[in-house]
Simulated scan of single mutants.
Amino acid sequence: MIVTEHVDFQTKGNAEMTDLTAKVARALERSGLEAGVAVVFASGATGAVTTIEYEPGLMADMKDALERIAPQKIEYAHNQRWGDGNGHSHIRASMIGPSLAVPFSERKLMLGTWQQIVFLDLDNRPRYRRVVVQIMGE
């Protein structure tokens, strides 16, 4: 069986991190499925989904790391073509990736103790975001 839900929320941009763990867990509960895989997918080209220990130190470290990997202040061909200044956002999102698969058993996500599911808004301005949660199992 496959159950699909959406998580909608507003973000501020600039590598803001949103903890989705509880929302994905509630979607899993509503699904009625006992075991399988939950896929979390970020719709859009400047958002990403991953896991991290959701705490202020690592949230700051992630922002710093992203700035070292794909700096905002350098020129991107995307910016020259579109003039929106978010070339770095697209690069960062493609490097982290738009989706995550989390196994579940006994209606519980099989995450580690310090592991949360997070959405990263990598754009340079606020956005309305939609994340797809597709739960497959029995």
Rank of each mutant, 00 (worst) to 15 (best):
V3Y: 02
T4L: 06
T4I: 13
E5N: 08
H6S: 11
V7M: 11
V7L: 15
F9V: 03
Q10T: 09
Q10V: 11
K12E: 15
K12H: 12
G13L: 12
N14D: 14
M17N: 01
D19K: 04
L20N: 06
T21Y: 00
T21Q: 03
T21D: 02
A22K: 10
A22W: 02
K23D: 11
K23P: 00
V24L: 03
V24T: 02
A25K: 02
L28S: 00
L28C: 00
S31H: 02
S31I: 04
G32L: 06
G32Q: 04
G32E: 01
G32W: 03
G32Y: 04
L33P: 04
E34Y: 05
A35T: 10
A38F: 01
A38H: 01
V40I: 15
F41S: 07
A42M: 13
A42C: 13
S43F: 06
G44P: 03
G47E: 09
G47S: 14
A48G: 05
T50K: 11
T50M: 15
I52D: 03
I52Q: 12
E53N: 12
E53Q: 14
E53M: 11
Y54W: 14
E55L: 12
E55A: 15
P56A: 14
G57C: 09
L58V: 11
K63A: 14
K63H: 14
K63G: 14
A65Y: 09
A65S: 10
L66N: 07
R68I: 13
I69H: 01
A70D: 05
A70I: 06
A70L: 06
P71V: 14
P71R: 07
P71G: 08
Q72H: 11
I74G: 02
E75W: 04
A77Q: 15
A77D: 13
H78A: 13
R81W: 08
W82C: 09
G83T: 10
G85L: 09
G85C: 07
N86R: 04
H88E: 02
S89N: 04
S89L: 07
S89P: 03
H90N: 02
H90E: 02
H90F: 01
R92Q: 12
A93Q: 08
M95D: 07
M95Q: 10
G97M: 10
P98M: 12
P98F: 07
V102M: 07
V102L: 13
F104V: 01
E106D: 15
E106C: 08
K108H: 10
L111P: 03
G112W: 05
T113S: 13
T113D: 09
T113Q: 12
Q116D: 15
Q116H: 14
I117N: 00
L120K: 01
L120R: 01
D123T: 04
R127C: 05
R129M: 03
V131S: 03
V131D: 03
V132W: 03
V133L: 03
V133A: 01
V133T: 03
I135N: 01
G137D: 02
E138A: 12
